[in-house]
Simulated scan of single mutants.
Amino acid sequence: MEKARDVLVIGGNRYFGKRLIRRLLAAGDRVTVLNRGSAAPPAGALHLVADRDDENSLRKALGARVFDVVVDQVCYTPRQAALARRVFEGRTRRYVMTSTVEVYEYEDSPTPVAESAVDPRTVAVDPELPWHDQEFLSSHYGEGKRQAEAVFAAGSDFPYVAVRVAHVLGGDDDFTGRLAHYAERIRSGTPIAVPAANRPATYIHVEEIADFLAWAVGEDFTGPVNAASDGLLSTDELCEAVAAQIPGGSVALRAVEVGEVSPLSFTRSYGMDNSRATRLGFTFGDVRQWLPKAVAETLGD
């Protein structure tokens, strides 16, 4: 029987974060969840309350605790990464950061991109940017994640993993409203605005990313790793899957050259290549097989 691990999960006590915590508990791990106290973790997990942006608060909450693995679900900026690195260096043998497909936002590749397309060791870090400003942070999400990865990657003495997560779909607790956006327009017969050159993207089911993170906790690889289901989806396919859940629903797309477009429509091609994770031993599902289930879960139709 595998030895129980001491795992700290920072933030992320909703959506795929709560699913991860339940998987770790079911595996017999000793799980500690640290957040600002906004939500209690699932039964069986220890709860620590601290502000992860306040180093004194974080150190006080942690005390002398050490962990086998830390899973950081809410690291968005290089400042947060630098603080975490100071606090957890020597306190954990492995640090798993939830990153994003948006680190590839400047790519435009006709084939899925590998991790090497964005090497965090070469990313410039600017902690003086206004990362504390929510509007700035929202508009620089991919850049914040890139720079956070760069902080963890600096040197060779911090065993970090950056899980670059594809666009997540599924679950009745999907809070993004992206599929609901399509459903509302399909029900009303309103055209769905997409870029004139609309590119496909990679996705992952909410249960699959929870599986992936739980698997990554038990592995020993380091560095960036892409997490995406097999296959690419276009906005058309997403809309058709939504329309299939709506009686009489039909899709009307409207291509626009300028102006606001619908969520999950992209002017660039930067689907992710998941072959590194596959070689390491994780088996992904096929996006087209789980898509109808994901849409039904989220829309509740």
Rank of each mutant, 00 (worst) to 15 (best):
E2I: 13
A4G: 11
D6K: 12
D6P: 04
V7F: 06
G11V: 06
G11Q: 03
G12H: 01
N13R: 04
Y15K: 08
F16V: 02
F16S: 03
F16N: 01
F16E: 00
G17D: 01
K18V: 14
L20V: 08
I21H: 03
L24I: 05
D29K: 00
R30K: 14
V31D: 01
A40L: 11
A40D: 07
H47N: 05
R59W: 06
A61Q: 10
A64H: 14
V71Q: 04
D72A: 13
R79D: 03
Q80A: 03
L83E: 08
L83G: 08
R85S: 00
R91L: 02
T92P: 00
T92Q: 00
R94I: 04
V96T: 11
T98R: 02
T100C: 02
E102A: 09
E102V: 08
V103Q: 05
V103W: 05
E105K: 14
Y106G: 13
P110E: 15
T111C: 14
P112N: 15
V113N: 13
V113H: 14
S116N: 15
P120Y: 06
P120H: 03
V125I: 15
D126P: 02
D126K: 01
E128T: 09
P130F: 00
W131E: 04
Q134N: 08
F136L: 07
S138E: 12
G142S: 05
G142Q: 01
E143K: 03
G144E: 00
G144H: 00
K145W: 02
A148L: 01
V151D: 00
S156D: 15
A162Y: 03
R164E: 02
V165G: 00
A166N: 09
A166L: 10
H167D: 08
L169G: 06
L169P: 07
L179S: 07
H181W: 11
H181Q: 13
A183E: 12
A183Q: 08
T190Y: 03
A193Y: 15
A193L: 14
R199V: 04
I204F: 05
V206R: 07
E208S: 06
F212M: 09
A214Q: 14
V217Q: 03
G218A: 04
E219V: 10
L232I: 15
L232M: 12
S234E: 09
T235I: 05
E237I: 14
L238W: 06
C239A: 08
A241Y: 07
P247Q: 01
S250I: 14
S250Q: 10
S250W: 12
V251G: 04
L253I: 10
R254E: 08
E260R: 10
L264C: 09
S265V: 11
R268C: 15
R268G: 14
S269Y: 12
S269P: 12
M272T: 06
D273W: 12
A277E: 06
T278V: 13
R279M: 15
L280K: 07
L280H: 11
G281Q: 06
F282T: 12
V287G: 05
P292R: 09
K293C: 05
A296N: 05
E297R: 10
T298E: 06
G300W: 10
G300L: 13
